[in-house]
C-alpha cells in the first residue's frame, strides 16, 4: 500500500502543479491582451456578429422638446447593416443601408435610394449616420492601450482609413464586463466631436450582457442630447442579398 500512497502523492503534486501552471497561463494571457484584442472582445460583448435589433432613438433639444424614432436593424459580418424606421408614421418604411463605407437612404415614395454620408444624420440630433449604422469598432479602428487602471482599460483607437467618420476614439473599457463606458470621438485636428456614454447594463439573453442605453452630447451642439435605447438583440442568420438596394423595400419582411 505504501507504493500506492507514494504514487498518489506524486500524482497529486503533478496535478496541483499543472493546475497552478494553467491558472498562471490563463491569467497571463488575459493580462497580455493587446488593444486590438480588447476591441474585438468589446465588439463581441456589445453584439453578435450577425443580429437583429430594436432600438429607440430620442433627440432632445435645448428647450426640452423631444423627437423619437424607432428602428429595426439587421447586421451581417463586419460591414453590412440595414436600419428600417418603424416610427413615427411620417418616417415609417424609410430605411438606410450600409455596405462598408457606402451608405444609402431609401424613401418609399421616392423609390430610388439616395447616397448619404457618414457625417450627415438622417434623424437630425447629435447621432450621425455612422453612429446609427455603426459597424464593429475593430472593423474600423486599430487600438493601443493608453492606460490601465484598477477597473478600466483606456484605449486609443485610430481609424484604419481616412473615410471613417472619426479620426480617433478614446475609449474607456470596463475590465469586469469588457464593454465601453465612455468614448470620446475626435477629428483629425484633435477636436472633440462628441462623447458617447454607455449606460444601464442589461441581460439581453443568450449570454449577451451589455449596456442598454447609449447617450451622446457634443461641444458642437451645446444643449442638445441624443439617446439610443436598445430593447431586443437576437442572433439572426441573414442572406447576403438582404444588404442590397433592391431589397430595401422588403426589409420589414425580416421581422
Amino acid at each position: 500500500m505504501m507504493w500506492f500512497k507514494q504514487l498518489f502523492k506524486i500524482n497529486s503534486n503533478v496535478i496541483f502543479s499543472v493546475v497552478v501552471f494553467l491558472c498562471l497561463l490563463v491569467t497571463s494571457t488575459a493580462a497580455a491582451l493587446d488593444g486590438n484584442e480588447i476591441l474585438l472582445q468589446v465588439d463581441r460583448n456589445l453584439q453578435p456578429e450577425s443580429y437583429e435589433m430594436y432600438r429607440k432613438l430620442i433627440n432632445i433639444e435645448p428647450d426640452g422638446s423631444k423627437k423619437e424614432y424607432v428602428l429595426y436593424t439587421v447586421k451581417k459580418g463586419q460591414d453590412r447593416m440595414v436600419a428600417l424606421f418603424l416610427s413615427p408614421a411620417s418616417e415609417k418604411g424609410r430605411s438606410t443601408l450600409r455596405l462598408g463605407d457606402n451608405m444609402w437612404l431609401y424613401i418609399p415614395s421616392v423609390g430610388k435610394p439616395l447616397r448619404i454620408t457618414s457625417l450627415q444624420s438622417v434623424v437630425g440630433g447629435v447621432f450621425n449616420n455612422s453612429d446609427i449604422l455603426r459597424l464593429d469598432y475593430s472593423a474600423e479602428y486599430d487600438a493601443v492601450i493608453l492606460e490601465k487602471t484598477a477597473d478600466k482599460y483606456i484605449l486609443n483607437c485610430k481609424a484604419k482609413t481616412s473615410s471613417i467618420a472619426y479620426d480617433s476614439l478614446k475609449m474607456e473599457v470596463d475590465k469586469k464586463t469588457m464593454v465601453p463606458v465612455t468614448i470620446g470621438c475626435y477629428a483629425a485636428s484633435g477636436m472633440l466631436i462628441k462623447t458617447l456614454y454607455y449606460k444601464n447594463i442589461k441581460d439581453f439573453g443568450d449570454d449577451l450582457l451589455r449596456p442598454s442605453v447609449l447617450e451622446t452630447d457634443s461641444p458642437l451642439y451645446k444643449g442638445y442630447k441624443s439617446i439610443m435605447i436598445y430593447a431586443r438583440i437576437n442572433k439572426k442568420k441573414l442572406a447576403d442579398e438582404v444588404f442590397t438596394l433592391n431589397y430595401l423595400p422588403r426589409v420589414d419582411e425580416l421581422r
Partner: peptide, 17 residues
C-alpha cells in the same frame, strides 16, 4: 425615461395607413 416597450412595434399581418 429609458423605457422602451416594443410590443406595439411587433409585426402584424394586416397594416393600414
Amino acid at each position: 425615461d429609458y423605457s422602451f416597450d416594443i410590443e406595439e412595434f411587433e409585426p402584424k399581418n394586416f397594416e393600414w395607413g
